[in-house]
Every structure is written in structure tokens, then in C-alpha cells.
Amino acid sequence: MRAVTGTQTSQSRKTAMAGARFQKNFWLLTMVLPGAIWLLLLRYLPMFGVVLAFKNYRAHKPNTFWNNIVKSDWVGLENFKFLNSPDTTIMIRNTLAYNALWIVLGLVIAVSFAVMLSELRSRFTAKVYQTMMFFPYFLSWVVASYFVLAFLDPTSGMIPAIQKSMGAKVTNFYHDKTWWPLILTLSNLWKNVGYSTVLYLAAITGIDRTQYEAAAVDGATKWQQIWHVTLPNIRTMIIILLIMNVGKIFNADFGLFYNVPQNSGTLYPVTQVIDTYVYRAYANTRNIGMSSAAGLLQSVVGCICILATNAIVKKIDPESTLF
């Protein structure tokens, strides 16, 4: 430790401190720099694209992207008219309901699994479980859709084959929407729970062991220790993941809703979400205006949800807010 000698005046000490502060901020800034440049180029620069949501984009002379944007007519909210379709309620209902259900289920299950894993006496078994559980998260939905197909395929799938061999009526899964809320929920949990579990587990193992020791000395049972030590310590992680998931409540996991049901039309009432609807509509009409409008709408709703959740969290627990 460098001692401050008594001969230094308070003036020069102030200058030295200001200099150190400047140096510190400067070096920290250089750390932020690569990420900031990336954000500027790949996220902020393209944001001019938001105007497309309010324009009737088409080619003009000379045909360059910039010129086309500038010269295309303003059309107000015309591009948002896609909302004026009978599918709108279905896709919004599906998007919100699935997301809300999965946020709650995912949270409860992942935290429980993380706590259980951290409490297992055999470290080796815990590691094996964790390894296996995280496995589905490796896979893309395309790959996962083959897994589902292997079970449900109407001619060769395992379940229909078993039904056939037992002489029961074969369920045509890709034309029977009863099962899909369950299949989608299971698929989603199957793929994502392991990942959240690992995040929570990493947070739990980061907890200072002395806290448990102190609690144990005070006579707390294991359940009490979990309640009073583990959960409060991972609260920040829980709340932040929660806020972020709520922010994406209007965005659906495209691959899950598109690839896993094999894009089967009969299932739309239970599989159509905003992302798949916009994708299908865009593939048919190549209307950038509409897809920009849909994207903007998702952003605005997401923003409102995040702000609202954040405000609620601020009331309950000011320490854990995102901002």
C-alpha cells in the first residue's frame, strides 16, 4: 500500500485522485470499447430500418437501398393492418399464454432442480444428472423436431406403431390439435430447463459456505437453510432472468412452433404464434413493411412489459432491479 505522505498538500492529493479516477475510467472504457463498437455498427446503425414500418417500400430510380427508403411513400399505420385479421387473437393468445406458462413452469422447475442438485450428497451423480439434463440445450429445434417425429410420425413413428400393433385407433398427431399444447410444453421444458438449471446452480455454488455453517449452528434445518440462505442469494439471478423472459413475452421461439409441429396447417389454432404468422405472411407477400411493423410492435410490447416488471420489482425488492 502506497502511503500518502504528510508533506503532500490537500490540493495535490485532489489532483492525484482526479488523475487516478480519469485513468480508471479510461481503462474501463477501453474494455467496453469492442462491445460498444459492435453494438453501434450492428445494432444502432440499422435502426433507421424502423421507418420501413411506416413506409410502402419499393424500388425507385436509382435503385439503391437508401434511395428506396427515402423515396418510398409514408403510409402511416397501413402496415399494421395485418393485425386486422381473425387470426390475430389466436396468435396473440397463443404467444402470451405459452410464454406465461413456460416462464412460471421453467422458473419453478429449474430452481427446484438446481437446489436438488446442489444438495445431493454424491457429487458424481449430481454431475451426471446435470450433464444429461443440459444435453437437449445443445440441439437446434430442427434436430429436436426429428426426435419428436421419431415418436409421432404417422406411418413409422413409435407411438402410432405401438397403437397399430395393439389394434388401437392410431392417433394422427400432426392432424390432431388436442395433444399439441402438451407436446409443445414438454418440448420447451425438455430443451430449456437444463440450461436454466445450470445458471442457477452456478449461482448457488457461488454462495459463501460460511452462511450455511452459521445457519446450521443456529439450528436451521436443511429446508430452512434453502429458504433463508439459498433462495435469497440467487434472488438477483431469478429476478433478472424473469424480467428478461417477460420482456420477450411477445416473441415466440420460432423453431419450436415451426419445425416441431412440422409446419402442419391443421395445428395452427394451437401452434400459430406471432413469429410464425409473420414469417408465413412474409414468405407469401414479401412485404418488408409488414414484417417491420410486426417487429416494432413486438419491441414496443416487450419494452412495456419489461418496464412494468421492473417497476413492480423495484417496489418489492429495490436491490434486484435490472436498471
Binding site: 455498427l41 446503425l45 440499422p46 430500418g49 424502423v50 420501413l52 420482456g247 414484417s291 417487429g295 435490472l322
Partner: peptide
């Protein structure tokens, strides 16, 4: 905020690809 905002708002696919 500089990072967080981009989680919610984006310019859309085509403008990003053009850049």
C-alpha cells in the same frame, strides 16, 4: 442501457444485413 436497449429494439433483418 446502450446494450440493454438493443435487446428490445432492432432495425429489422434487411437493414441489418444491408449494413
Amino acid at each position: 442501457y446502450f446494450s440493454f436497449i438493443t435487446m428490445i429494439f432492432g432495425g429489422g433483418l434487411i437493414p441489418t444485413v444491408v449494413i
